[in-house]
Computed example of a mutant assay.
Amino acid sequence: MVDSERIQNPWMSSEHTSIQMNLNANATKRFSYPSKSSLNNDKLGVAERAFSAAGAAVLSAVIVNPLDVAKTRLQAQAAGVAYSHPLSNLNSRMSCFGPNMMFADLRCSPSCTRAGFHGTVSLCPPDCFRYKGTLDVMYKIIQQEGFTRLWRGTNAGLALAVPTVGIYLPCYDIFRNWFEEYTTENAPTATPYVPLVAGSLARSLACATCYPIELARTRMQAFKETQIGKKPPGVYQTLAGVVNVKGTNRPPNSLQGYRVLWTGMGAQLARDVPFSAICWSTLEPTRRKLISLVGGDDASILSILGANFSAGFVAGTLAAGATCPLDVAKTRRQIERDHVRALKMTTRQTLVEIWRDGGLKGLFTGLGPRVGRAGPSVGIVVSFYEVVKFALNHRHTTS
């Protein structure tokens, strides 16, 4: 009947076409967030997903690096790393030449008023070089080493973040899509566990691939530069120092020497796998709930940004708090300078040692900066990644 009416009334065809064109134009102008059912059908390739993730990783690494430095310094101090003025070791070596050769300024900073004189040496009390908390770490680093040292290890963080997150988030998307498709058809009751499994597998793959850079970043952040006026070693020099360390505690062959570059990877996986499992199993339902509250499939790009950041912040905070003891163990294993001991130690032995030395407080050393770093970091990474994915998907749709 409709066809006959169009034949009898030709104006209906042109009007119908005009209305349809207007509706299509309005549809392309309106952003819509992909629903759960359409996640498997987006048109992004691995390269575009990696690009989205890398951009998120760069932004996050720069913003939260000071908290990462504070966390690492607190954990390294609890493990026995002594922080002091760079000249203190030089002064002790010069003491054999007599008091006339000991003239030095060992104040923590030129503005410190707590320094006293020991002979001809201006000396600060030990408390000036001991960290008491997150803000105290930041204050003393700025005062003693300079403001830019809060971003110590950022180059390693960027070198690590781009490939790691560039592997992690795209692989998570791919694994999640595969597992959701499989469980929907074959095991519907297992679908809620898909984010947990996909996140764990993706994080394990990313961690094993880029671990030596993570080792370099931890050591760069944990240790002070002892030579005044000399540029601190970068990623390559730090890793070369790990492999080429001299002394009796060096591994007996070159193969074990390079194996040291993966020292503590078990602790890293023991931390990152449950972190990812907790994070994604919390983030996915939270994100979908928030997006449904702000408009569902018709949510605006700002709503998507806010929903993803909020869900990422909550998930990252919970996951970081739960896995803090494993993070302490990871740091302790990565800063171990005795290669033979480092190769023999296990994560379980390290946790027992931490408990024996510091009890429950020792296991949660650096909890404040770790939680303060992980919440915003996950929120930034996930929201930036999803917004870029959203924009690229929209470009594919309209082209």
Rank of each mutant, 00 (worst) to 15 (best):
Y211S: 00
I304S: 06
A76M: 08
L318H: 00
R395H: 14
A202C: 03
H339P: 01
A270K: 00
L255F: 11
G166V: 01
V197S: 05
V81H: 02
R219Q: 13
A315M: 10
Y236E: 08
S4H: 12
T286D: 02
V273G: 01
G257S: 12
Y211W: 09
Q143V: 07
R259H: 08
K230A: 11
G264P: 09
I213G: 01
K246F: 02
F51M: 12
L67S: 04
R30G: 02
A79T: 05
F364P: 10
V2I: 13
G45W: 05
P212G: 04
P66Y: 08
L290H: 02
A161M: 11
N393S: 14
T317Q: 01
P274C: 04
P163H: 02
A329E: 02
V314C: 09
L44Y: 08
C279L: 08
I228F: 05
R203F: 00
L123R: 09
N393T: 15
R93I: 10
N249M: 09
L360V: 13
I278R: 01
S303H: 07
L293M: 10
S4A: 15
P369D: 06
P99Y: 09
V243E: 04
I301N: 01
S37D: 15
V378A: 10
R152E: 14
R152H: 07
G358M: 08
G234M: 03
L67H: 06
G80Q: 09
P34N: 10
W262H: 05
V242H: 06
F384A: 15
A50R: 00
S292C: 00
A198F: 08
L158T: 03
L392A: 04
L343R: 05
G266I: 03
C124A: 08
L196T: 15
T238Y: 05
A161L: 08
I63G: 03
R370N: 12
A104G: 04
T317N: 00
T282F: 03
T184E: 15
Y131S: 04
R107Q: 12
N244E: 14
P195M: 07
R217T: 04
A76L: 06
C207V: 09
E353V: 01
G266N: 11
E5L: 15
A159C: 12
L67Q: 06
P163W: 01
M220P: 01
R370T: 06
T134I: 03
D173P: 00
A53M: 04
L160S: 03
L283S: 09
I301T: 11
L59V: 13
T154D: 07
M102Y: 07
S60T: 13
L215K: 06
S52E: 03
S377P: 04
M265P: 00
K344I: 00
R370A: 08
K132T: 13
E386H: 15
C112R: 13
A115F: 12
F97E: 06
L302T: 14
K361H: 13
D338V: 10
L290K: 05
S60N: 06
R6L: 11
P274M: 02
A104D: 11
L318G: 01
R114A: 14
V81C: 00
C128E: 10
V273D: 00
V162H: 04
I213N: 04
S92G: 05
P251Y: 03
T183C: 13
S18K: 12
A190S: 11
